[in-house]
Design a protein around this nucleic acid. Sequence first.
DNA 1: ATATTTGCCTAACAAACGTTAGTAATTCCC
DNA 2: GGGAATTACTAACGTTTGTTAGGCAAATAT
Lengths: 194, 194
Amino acid sequence: MDTISRKEQIISTSAKLFRQKGFEAASMRDIAAALGIEAASLYSHIKSKDEILETICFRMAAELIRAIDEVNDVYFNAEEKLATAIKNHVKIVTGDLDSSTVFLREWRRLPAGKLAEFVKLRNKYEEGFMQILINGENENVFDAPDKKFAVLTILSAVNWITEWYSPKGNMTPDEIAEHLFRFITTGLRVKATA
Amino acid sequence: MDTISRKEQIISTSAKLFRQKGFEAASMRDIAAALGIEAASLYSHIKSKDEILETICFRMAAELIRAIDEVNDVYFNAEEKLATAIKNHVKIVTGDLDSSTVFLREWRRLPAGKLAEFVKLRNKYEEGFMQILINGENENVFDAPDKKFAVLTILSAVNWITEWYSPKGNMTPDEIAEHLFRFITTGLRVKATA
DNA sequence: ATATTTGCCTAACAAACGTTAGTAATTCCC
DNA sequence: GGGAATTACTAACGTTTGTTAGGCAAATAT
């Protein structure tokens, strides 16, 4: 029944606390207390506090990249690609809100070497979206004057949901994804002045 | 010549370090070292580390709220209001990137009482944008199915610039604001399928 | 049944933290 | 010029931090 390993328990508990209090403010003693054990006992399962942060950040990065690669491999048109990429992103983020928030908010606290590696992965993910916009331009369905700018703006919008999404809220992940797609593709839709 | 007070120096130096390393990771000793003095000397000018964070966060909040109130008081139409609000926001954020980043990223570390007060101000700012969208709907120029959602998405886009903007970059604040306005109002502009 | 690994414990560590006390030097005001 | 602020200092405080060492009991493997 309790098939989830102690190490995974530590990671998910840490994600929750890192999200609530921030990486540095959530102490090993806090994490241990949340699990009902002593801080020193954590070290039977993990090497260091940094390792927990690394695991969370790189896991999420891998999951997101896998999703965007999959979208770009399959032969949808650009519009479908974008819709699917957004849907996947929202699904992943809302599926593990704690880890996602840490991934988005606390990655800066990664130790120097790992940080550089992480940024590469982040760029790779952005590259995946960039590819969709390029496709869209070739297909003549998207028109972004500055594609790098557009990618960053799109990602900011889809990432911001960690700030307000609640599983108890009245929007499902798919509904959120739909709203986002609509907003990203059509904006507020200023009507032409008469 | 050096008309800027020591307290202001402490605050701006702190903002820089809080942005670089995070609020908790930037120690009083770090701040003092950056100013060439001892940590204890800081306390001749400020009451506590928290006070520095408070000052930065509430100052930015006040500036942004003043700007949005001004926009809403003046009688532009909704489209002009939105354009001006975005332009002001970008100008304020790029004008003090360190403080803005702290305002956006580190406000969570405010002490409990101040945090509640801060969130109210943040909501007030969001309310200002909401008002613009409501105006726009009445004027029949904007059409957002979920206005609260739209406001959050718009703000996420304008706030994300702290993550990549550099004064040395090739876009001026006004150009950024223009791009953002265009994106927010028209999106990627999917063309109707033939 | 014996040996080994696992998972937790207590105790302690060195370092870093924000902050206070008390003091000396400089600057400002009258 | 004398008194009062102002601004910095050294020294130290009590906590909290991540982490290690070493041991002990229960589970697992042989």
